[in-house]
Design a binder for these strands. Structure first.
Lengths: 227, 227, 227, 227
DNA sequence: AGTTAAACGAGACGGTACGTCATGTCTTATT
DNA sequence: AATAAGACATGACGTACCGTCTCGTTTAACT
């Protein structure tokens, strides 16, 4: 996550950034933002998440554990959720890198394997919290989609295009729909049904999805009709 | 869900129930639980949900609006989530009845239409909160699956069985997997992508799912291989 | 404390008493007041007072310990203080009987010894609570004076009269003033200074009081003037 | 009682005081305690005491009236009683200054006049509550004696010593005993008998006390003997 | 080198809600 | 009719955090 000093992953509260002119890179007077503190804060969040869910972690606790003033946290993150999202993203990038090796199949399945494995880690468990938060804070929901959902879909989108091109997937399909069909069952299984989701399950899902459910073709092309 | 007087939908905190024998129906001494209060509490929750998300509703507020003591709420529900779930279930039963008319196809699509429409209502928006809560409180997650997820799946399960029997769906498919493929994309689209999910989208999902994604058949049955 | 069944020492809340005619002793319809319960309640109070001060004892606790409904307590006593006062009086009568044996001196000192000893017992410690309650509830203060303070003063009043008559105490003294001088220092020492108050101290107080503080008499009879 | 900024009259909860070195007067980091809030709280207590007794005043009410958070009160005072005692002391200092003008007689009677007059004021009425609290909380009782009772007694103690020296009071008397005899009757009359206690009554008490009760002297110096 | 200003730790503050407890009232079934 | 059991509305308790606000300190860039 290479980023300039005053840039959060959640991309917010960096009011001064715009003021910094393009070329000169003139630094503001006064003390600079402490990288050390940011590091300590994110680390504290991740450590605390091993013990209890985000809901039960207070800003006060994070500040204390990080050896940081509360105000420093409030200064750089608009809410606990954004803070947690930064921590989440940090871990996500380490554990689920987006790769495009050219080998579409491998990239896709590796992506799904890693993703669903990540959701079992303390940081990954945040996902459910984020969904709840997304209901409450539309801005956060937006951030979440832009920074987490979209990049994943884009990867698969590329694979989809290639597969259509090479006729591995039939034409005429709505790309968004297909992406929903690919990602949906996994998320549903994990977040809602809370059932285990190993590699076999991923393989089976994808496989069944490709082949379809249909048995003997119905004459008029509609599904689920009495013969 | 017809229930005896002292029974919550969330099925908890009714310590005395067991003590009541089946036949004699002997009532315990002392004042009985007030049905009126229970009603008022659930109503208050639903009304408040029109204004703001569950997270921002305090127990104190509910009690005040319902004209009820806080202690009464704490007595019968272990947490705000359980209370909200009762309210959610109440509305759900009204709006998304589980019907088995014998017409499998109609039952399934009607079920999905109604379900996803329900999620747009104030009570339906709770779903995201419940997922978050489920991460925090495993007991709640369990309740949620038992009382909400399972009954829906059972309905579709029956339809699935019939369809297999009549060869509308090919044999050899794992039932749970198919249910994930049917429900998953809808939930994902709504909860995670927060994209609209009308009747057309439902039709397209189901339709594509049945037909499968595959283009030109690959020789060895594996998906996504260069020809 | 011989009393009719439905009479509290605190003499309150016995609305039905008036209705009972003198001679016929016609009993009210329905179940009679349970002597047993009253007994149990007062006992419970006294036992609880051994563990903690009245302030920290709840009506609920008393009811539970006495195996009695809360309503029963509320029915017969207007507040916790009155209830405690009944318990206090009960113990007081046992431990500090008012005796008039004719031997004035002995009666007085015995009275004081016993009284101040009583104040060291759990029930006696209530006295401080009663003073506080008296500030809050004038009716209780009145009851307290009538039933506790006055009877003690009357005993000493008789002794005072005899002593004046026999010239052991000089004439022309205000009776109430003298009673204040006799009782005051003891109460002050115990309740306010919380200093020990044994027999010696009582003897010294009375002795000094009788003899007076004066040294060389001042010519005009006023105290504390430079000669 | 001149005190540093962060010092309560009740002398408690000032954990950090010790850490402040004597000479440098280095202030601790962070925001300083708000004098303004302390003032507002004590004022609120005194105002509320005009309407009702301490028992019926809730911390919540005080906080609201003072425009202050409850936590601020709990932070600096361990209980309502200590808070009330600070308010009491504040008023006491204004209304009953301890003076030692050298004129012993005047100082003493003025002290008693003012003291007993003070007890008729809203703040003064607290005294009874404090006695009750003293029974419950030994630490409070101790504070009460140290900060209220002792200073008064010391003043009179000095007068006593002078009076003995000048032979206005005879020698050989126990100082503590005499102080009890002087203060006791007044407190008793007011707190326990709840009888009025004007200047005349004070004069009569002191006068009678100095002269003694004795009538015809008994031969052996014992009081209360049959002639 | 001195000045200025931002960021920082500490922590007090006015609030809000928490979940618990006790109050005094009321209802129900029992005695 | 009086009781025990116990549910109830009410409201205060003392605690925990919230997000804001001084404080005095530290760190840079700009004089």
């Amino acid at each position: 996550m290479q980023k300039p000093a005053t840039r959060n992953d959640s991309g917010r509260k960096t009011r001064l950034q715009a003021a910094r002119s393009k070329g000169k890179e003139l630094k503001r007077r006064g003390r600079q933002r402490s990288e050390e503190s940011e590091e300590a804060i994110l680390s504290a969040v991740i450590h605390l998440l091993r013990e209890k869910p985000l809901r039960d972690i207070s800003i006060e606790e994070i500040a204390k554990k990080a050896g940081v003033g509360k105000a420093t946290i409030y200064k750089w993150w608009p809410s606990k959720a954004y803070l947690a999202f930064d921590a989440f993203s940090k871990r996500l990038k380490e554990m689920v890198p987006i790769r495009d090796t050219g080998n579409a199949e491998k990239d896709l399945t590796e992506q799904l394997y890693a993703l669903f494995a990540f959701f079992e880690t303390p940081a990954g468990k945040l996902l459910g919290q984020f969904l709840g938060e997304g209901q409450v804070d539309e801005e956060f929901a937006c951030l979440f989609r832009e920074r987490f959902i979209k990049p994943r879909r884009q990867l698969v989108g590329v694979i989809f295009d290639r597969a259509v091109e090479s006729s591995q997937i039939r034409g005429g399909l709505d790309r968004e729909l297909v992406l929903d069909l690919i990602y949906g069952p996994g998320f549903y299984r994990m977040m809602i049904r809370r059932a285990p989701l190993g590699r076999d399950a991923v393989d089976a899902m994808i496989s069944t999805l490709f082949r379809g459910l249909k048995g003997t073709p119905s004459r008029d092309g509609r599904y689920l009709r009495r013969s």
